[in-house]
């Protein structure tokens, strides 16, 4: 059987080889971004380009987190004045976190309550609502953005992070609803019935029995909601007017100054924008796959 063993080892080795090639190809853009972000200006444009920087530097990250002046100085004759986009980076980061968490919280609470209600009670419209949600979650966001914008104008909420929270609820709620509904449906209701018979109230049942069982679904829905909100460019671009209230996605695009692009800075910003998502992803990857199992998911 040595022939077979040799055969299976070769097979295994070639499988690993294929996997490595595919993975490297897929991850190359990210690796290159990381590498660029760690290079000093002189090395970024060097030929031949270097994958591992000869001289690693954190200057791009320091510039973003510390707020460095970005403009060239016109032959060194005078100092540039006024804030430059890089100086807002930390502020935009905080804004992004706020609107992402805010909208996710609302979407999850609303959709969990609704999904419970839809699967545990009988009333008119109960079977229509999930399909209505499904339809909503296939709507292009370009349809929502201007009507919502005009609504925010009337509510005097433009240039306010709250407008983005509402905007993101609009695009995340439908799929959270659909996902939670699919998940709740798969939870057997016998336990709840037993608890009710034992004298628990509906609220107790919901809090103590249903919520813990639904946790994987809630986590999956939260991840999707966070990804979508963190990713958004369109709503941020339209709803926000002042530099102070921008989110990361829109703000970082301002780094394209018109006549001067600092690629090191841009790549560092890209890395920093991806890190929170990466952490989330690594911690909750398992639930992501489970969530996809429960219902198809927006991308």
């Amino acid at each position: 059987m040595t022939g077979d063993a040799w055969w299976s080892a070769t097979k295994k080795a070639s499988l690993y080889l294929v996997l490595c090639i595919v993975t490297l190809t897929v991850c190359f853009p990210l690796i290159w971004a990381l590498s660029t972000s760690l290079k000093p200006k002189s090395e970024i444009f060097a030929t031949p380009p270097t994958l591992i920087p000869h001289s690693t530097t954190l200057e791009n990250y320091e510039a973003l987190l510390g707020g460095r002046q970005q403009y060239y100085q016109s032959g060194g004759a005078s100092q540039a004045m006024g804030p430059t986009p890089a100086q807002f980076f930390t502020r935009w980061f905080v804004n992004s976190v706020i609107v992402t968490l805010g909208s996710t919280l609302i979407s999850i609470v609303v959709s969990t309550l609704a999904a419970y209600s839809l699967t545990r009670f009988r009333y008119w419209g109960r079977s229509v609502i999930p399909y209505f949600s499904l339809l909503g979650y296939m709507m292009p966001s370009i349809i929502f953005v201007f009507p919502l914008f005009l609504m925010m104008v009337r509510l005097e909420l433009t240039d306010n992070l709250l407008s983005l929270v509402f905007g993101y609820v609009c695009i995340t709620l439908p799929f959270c609803m659909w996902l939670m509904w699919a998940f709740m449906r798969s939870i057997p209701i016998e336990i709840e019935e037993a608890a009710l018979i034992d004298g628990a109230s509906r609220y107790q049942v919901f809090a103590q029995v249903v919520l813990p069982t639904a946790l994987p679904g809630i986590i999956a829905a939260s991840i999707f909601s966070i990804i979508v909100s963190w990713n958004d460019y369109l709503f941020g671009r339209v709803f926000i007017n002042s530099l102070d209230n921008l989110t990361l996605t829109v703000g970082v695009m301002l780094f394209f100054e018109g006549t001067h692009v600092d690629w090191g800075l841009l790549m560092a910003a890209s890395v920093l924008m991806t890190v929170p998502m990466a952490i989330l992803f690594m911690a909750l990857q398992r639930h992501l796959v489970a969530g996809f199992g429960a219902g198809a998911v927006k991308g």
Partner: peptide
């Protein structure tokens, strides 16, 4: 994990990286 990773990278980031590479 690495093969699923691109899904969570923000579109703005990918667009920037694309323009660069």
């Amino acid at each position: 994990g690495m093969l699923l990773f691109p899904y969570i990278v923000p579109t703005v980031v990918i667009a920037l990286i694309w323009r660069w590479i």
